Simulated scan of single mutants.
Amino acid sequence: MGESTAPILRVNQLNKQFGTGCRQCNEVGSRQLDKNYCTACGTVHACQQISFDLYPGEVLGIVGESGSGKSTLMRCLYFDQEVTNGEAFLTPYKDGSSNLFEESSQQQRYIRNHLMGKVYQNPVMGLRMDFSSIGNIAEKMIAAGNRHVAAMESRGSELLEKVHIPLHRMKEAPKNFSGGMQQRVQIAKAMSNNPPILLLDEVTTGLDLSVQANVLDLIKHLQRELNISIVLVSHDLGVIRMLADRTMVMLDGQIVEQGLTDQILEDPQHAYTQQLVHSML
């Protein structure tokens, strides 16, 4: 990655809290929290001052234990939840000059439909289980303004083939599919409008190891072929090692360490990262 490469996504000081906060926890510099929880008023500071850049064609891994704020961060980036405050700029959107979090809900829908795809940990969140698989892909294409049925059908078939769903099953509903197949349909749906950015939230959790390996291979292959930028959340360092170029480590709503994946796995600096890496060996 040359110095001239500008980030495709810049996130700056993103905060997400559940609760109004109080004197004890609202001052950023002097917060007194138990992990990410304020014992005085009960506010949870799920994401605190999160800043990072994502570069074109890069896979950025985010690792951390359950409750570290990584899935909340993903929900904020995809507008599934509103941020408390912070900024995000996307180069393909208004040349990266407009804070995405301050755009209207209509504009945020446009960004979701054209510029981002998301694959959820639980396929029920990302798919309509009673629609056909190809119908799920068409739904995302229609949301982005496509009206041409034949074009949608050919794009849908192409994507399902890419993710190894047999075409004779494309009219079948995902509720009849195994977990691994449901994840693959979700990946096809997320990619239907050629978004430059894909958000993957714990996509292999709960899958058998052999199925996990297949899904990860698929993601790796698609990422290389299409040069998509990916933000990948996992609590599994094996997944991060296989896919991520750079890695951020989150703990209690904060980034405690970030760097090249190899560097973080081979020479972790923060005590929590050392513990994570050690538990993987």
Rank of each mutant, 00 (worst) to 15 (best):
P7W: 06
I8K: 10
I8E: 08
L9M: 11
L9R: 06
Q13I: 05
K16P: 02
T20S: 00
G21P: 04
C22N: 10
Q24F: 05
E27C: 12
E27K: 14
G29E: 15
S30W: 12
R31S: 00
D34I: 03
D34T: 02
G42M: 00
T43M: 00
H45T: 10
C47E: 06
Q48I: 11
G57P: 06
G57N: 08
L60E: 10
G64W: 07
E65D: 08
S66M: 03
G67H: 14
G69H: 11
K70G: 02
S71A: 13
G86I: 01
L90V: 09
T91L: 05
F101T: 02
E103H: 13
S104M: 08
Q106A: 11
L115R: 11
G117M: 04
K118E: 04
K118N: 03
Y120C: 10
P123S: 03
V124D: 03
L127T: 09
D130G: 05
S132V: 12
S132D: 13
S133A: 15
I134V: 15
G135A: 13
A138D: 01
K140V: 15
M141T: 09
M141A: 10
H148E: 15
A150Y: 14
M152P: 13
S154K: 13
R155I: 09
L159A: 09
L160G: 10
V163S: 05
E172M: 14
N176R: 11
M181W: 03
M181R: 04
Q183E: 15
R184N: 10
I187R: 03
N194Y: 12
L198N: 03
D201K: 09
T205K: 05
N214H: 12
V215Q: 06
E225W: 13
N227W: 05
N227R: 09
I230T: 12
I230W: 07
V231D: 00
L232S: 03
V233C: 00
L237V: 03
M242R: 12
M248V: 13
M250L: 01
M250D: 00
Q254A: 07
I255P: 04
V256Y: 04
D262K: 12
Q263L: 01
I264C: 08
L265W: 10
A271T: 14
L276S: 01
L276G: 01
L276C: 01
